[in-house]
C-alpha cells in the first residue's frame, strides 16, 4: 500500500497486515478521497482548511488518538489553538461551532434538533452546518478504523 494513505500510516500497518489490507485496497483509497473532501475541499464554505484541520485534531484528541491529532494539528496554522478541547472558541466567535462539534463527536446520542437550531441562530447557513457534520462524521469513521487496525496489528505481535 502507498504511504500517502493517512489511515494506514496512522494505524502503523506497514509490513504487518499488508495481505489482508490489500483485499480492501479500494476502500482505503476511497477513504483517502473522503479525507481530502472534508479536510481540503475545493469549496470549503465558511470553514477554511486550517480550521478544518484544527477541528479534526480536536476530535482526534477527544477520542484519545494522539498520533492522528498530531498529524492533523500540523495543518491547523493560525487555528492551531482550537485543536485543544479546553479552548471554547468564544474569543474567535466560534463558541457554538466548537460546542456542536464536541457534542457530535463525543456525545452523539444526546444530539437533538435544538443543537442544529442553535447553529442556525448563530447565523450559520444550512450548507455550512452540513459541512461541519460531514467533517465530524468522517473523523468518527477514520478514528475507529485506525483504532481497530492498530488492535488487529497488535494481535499479530
Amino acid at each position: 500500500m502507498t504511504p500517502e494513505l493517512t489511515t494506514l500510516r496512522m494505524a502503523g500497518t506497514d509490513g504487518v497486515l499488508e495481505a489482508v489490507i490489500a483485499t480492501r485496497a479500494n476502500i482505503f483509497e476511497m477513504t483517502q478521497a473522503a479525507e481530502d473532501a472534508v479536510l481540503r475541499p475545493k469549496a470549503p464554505g465558511a470553514w477554511p482548511h486550517s480550521l478544518r484541520a484544527a477541528l479534526a485534531a480536536r476530535i482526534a484528541t477527544l477520542n484519545a488518538q494522539t498520533a492522528l491529532a498530531r498529524h492533523y494539528a500540523t495543518g491547523a496554522g493560525d487555528d492551531a489553538a482550537l485543536a485543544d478541547p479546553a479552548q471554547d472558541g468564544a474569543a474567535r466567535g466560534l463558541g457554538p461551532v466548537l460546542a456542536f462539534m464536541d457534542k457530535v463527536a463525543a456525545d452523539t446520542r444526546q444530539v437533538v434538533a435544538g443543537d442544529i437550531a442553535a447553529l442556525q441562530a448563530a447565523g450559520i447557513s444550512d450548507a455550512d452546518i452540513v459541512r461541519l457534520a460531514e467533517l465530524n462524521a468522517f473523523l468518527a469513521y477514520q478514528i475507529r478504523v485506525v483504532a481497530g487496525l492498530r488492535l488487529l496489528r497488535e494481535a499479530r505481535a
Binding site: 489490507i21 480492501r24 457530535v104 442544529i116 457534520a133 462524521a137 469513521y141 478504523v145 481497530g148
Partner: peptide, 21 residues
C-alpha cells in the same frame, strides 16, 4: 475482523449524519 472494523466505523460516520441532521 477487518470488515467488522470497517462496517462499524462506517456507522460512526452515518449515525453522525442521520441522527444529527
Amino acid at each position: 475482523i477487518l470488515d467488522l472494523i470497517l462496517s462499524t466505523s462506517l456507522f460512526g460516520w452515518a449515525n453522525r449524519l442521520m441522527h444529527v441532521l
